[in-house]
Simulated assay, not measured.
Amino acid sequence: MDKTGHRQIGIVVVMASLMIGSGVGRPARAFDITTDVPKESGRFDLFRFGFKAYQNGDKEKAVEAYRYAAEKGHTGSRWALANMYAYGDGVPENDYEAFKAYAEIVNHDVEPGSPDTGFYVNALLALAGYYQTGIAGTPVEVDLVQARQLYFQAASVFGSPEAQFRLARMILNGEGGAKNVRLAKKWLNLARKNGNVGAMAVFGDLVFNEGQPVLGLAYLTMAADRCAPGDCSWIRELQEKCFSVVDENDRRGAIALAQNMSTSNP
């Protein structure tokens, strides 16, 4: 998987944020992870065992427990296995195995707001990313139309800000369908309002080039102030490019406006 631009998030951190409703928050018997994986246990107990083993650094047992739980239909375990294969975390990196695990999640529809929603949306994003790049030596070929459709599903049905941003960029570049700057701008603005910093930067660049330099630079300045380390390079490059072609009054106006907007919309 081409992970450039697709931020890798540690499984422990993401898993903790997706646990609610997946069984980990429920009272459960204490597991001794020094023993063998209790494969006859129910899927939620196996999931808890795997997560505890992962947290304690025993990824071999985590993988085994997740596999048993996945075979019994546990979505969170499928997602954990997919991520481990995607990033070579405790297993040899294998994008095709990851793709198949993500696809298995997506093949089982979920209702927005259900306990498995977070896993489902993450799987949609991962599959779309694979379709954007393809997986060499496997049946998974580049399919930009499919990637765009998956991003649209995650963006519209589930309201994912990251999907809204990625969809907007595909529309802006005419990938997987017609180029439509106005439509791309709408998705960017929605993603920006939902907290996506990358969308704020690209939206600001569009506004700047449409003849609103102060407003565009203000968005770029806020994005540069809020960006995560993996995104700061390209965002600051955009900001510096725009700053270099305006006069001092516009620069000062943009900085002041950015401060005002940050105060009113922290």
Rank of each mutant, 00 (worst) to 15 (best):
A155F: 10
V145M: 02
V157F: 06
F165A: 10
F158P: 02
V181I: 15
A184W: 05
G159F: 04
R182L: 11
E162Y: 05
G176C: 07
F165K: 14
A184V: 01
G174M: 05
S160T: 05
N180I: 09
D143V: 04
M170D: 14
S160L: 05
K179Y: 05
S156K: 10
F158R: 04
R169G: 01
A163H: 06
A184E: 00
G159A: 10
V142M: 10
A168R: 02
R169L: 14
K179F: 07
L167G: 04
Q164I: 04
Q164E: 15
P161I: 00
L172Q: 14
Y151L: 11
A163I: 03
V157S: 03
V145D: 07
Q146N: 09
Q146I: 10
P161T: 04
F152P: 00
Q164R: 14
Q146E: 15
Y151S: 11
D143M: 09
A168W: 02
R169Q: 13
Y151W: 13
E141L: 06
G177E: 07
D143K: 07
L172S: 07
V157A: 07
Y151Q: 12
R166Y: 10
N173S: 12
A178Q: 12
A178P: 03
A154N: 03
S156T: 11
F158V: 06
L183A: 13
E175K: 12
R148M: 00
F158H: 07
E141W: 01
L183F: 05
A154T: 03
A154P: 06
F165C: 07
V181P: 00
A155W: 04
D143Q: 09
A163Y: 04
L172I: 00
V157E: 12
R169K: 14
S160Y: 01
Q149F: 02
N180R: 07
L167S: 03
E175H: 13
V157Y: 01
R148Y: 00
K179V: 09
L172M: 08
G177Y: 08
D143R: 09
G177I: 09
E162W: 02
M170N: 12
L150E: 01
L144D: 04
R166T: 02
G159E: 10
L144T: 13
Q149I: 04
A147V: 09
R182M: 05
D143I: 04
V145I: 14
L172R: 11
L144R: 11
Q146V: 12
F158E: 02
A155T: 12
S160V: 02
I171D: 08
Q164F: 01
G177Q: 09
Q149D: 11
G174P: 08
E162H: 04
F165L: 11
I171G: 11
